[in-house]
Nucleic acid binder design. Structure first.
Lengths: 147, 147
DNA sequence: CTTGTTGCAAATCGTTTGCAGGACA
DNA sequence: TGTCCTGCAAACGATTTGCAACAAG
């Protein structure tokens, strides 16, 4: 059932066209990286990864930022923020809502497939992580701004 | 039961001494602002507020950053991050754990006195906010880093 | 005194913007 | 072709750092 890199790239191409975006080398490279590696990654990391995989032409870091912004608008990727002043991006898989658990020391990132908003308290001890804290903020439109 | 500004300042002085910090004008000004106004505030906002209240001598913005960092280490204030690239700080009141609900448009900040980690799903509709999303990340020490 | 703090200037870091040349539809 | 994209350089905003003057204990 696992998709080959080629299949994924084909999917990406189609998603871009469906979104009305031009299919450029830069966009293909970035989305290819994001769909093959396990993120989330910062813009700089993506930039590095693209350059590391010599398969594609080098792209500018500014282009990475612009593409990621566009992808996020289109819902192709989702951004997350670990509070360290750097945005991170990962491919958005429909119907797979998750959060992250980040190690304060090594920065390892694990996916938490549960969402406390759903209903149940998380049973985090399972993960083996210690000294767990969390960052949670809500965003919405306040009554006044709703008109 | 409400404490006067003077009482609060006295408390602040004691907390600083208890923490082994020198009681300086800059620190008193910042903590005084934070304990009197309803935050959270960015470093720049605090800087502006300190300058606005002509009661105290002007302090440098760098000093604001340094004091806030120190206060956070000591647990006097807590930082929060709304993902807009600016850290915000508020006085930490023991036994009053809360999160925030930020209007996407006017940036109004409301306190959410509930925490989904406690156990129950939030009943946010009560607040009148619409189109609510949330930002949630967990931090901890992973098994490998625990030794 | 003497160590912790501050102010000032300058550096850093992530990210954004302006503009001209270049690539997709 | 005409518009969308990209690269390059430069601007930006938040935060940090180096260093010498300064003030609290």
């Amino acid at each position: 059932m696992a998709k080959s890199a080629k299949d994924k790239d084909k999917q990406i191409d189609q998603k871009l066209r469906a979104a009305g975006l031009k299919v450029t080398q830069a966009r293909l490279s970035i989305l290819s990286i994001l769909s093959q590696k396990h993120g989330p990654f910062s813009a700089d990391e993506i930039y590095q990864l693209v350059h590391a995989s010599k398969k594609t032409a080098a792209i500018d870091k500014v282009t990475v930022y612009r593409c990621l912004t566009k992808f996020e608008e289109l819902g192709l990727v989702s951004a997350c923020d670990f509070g360290d002043g750097t945005a991170r991006y990962e491919i958005k898989h429909e119907d797979h809502h998750h959060h992250h658990l980040i190690c304060r020391i090594c920065k390892r990132i694990e996916e938490i497939p549960l969402c406390p908003m759903d209903d149940i308290p998380l049973r985090l001890p399972k993960t083996g992580y210690k000294d767990i804290s969390h960052r949670l903020e809500f965003f919405g439109i306040c009554p006044k701004c709703s008109e």
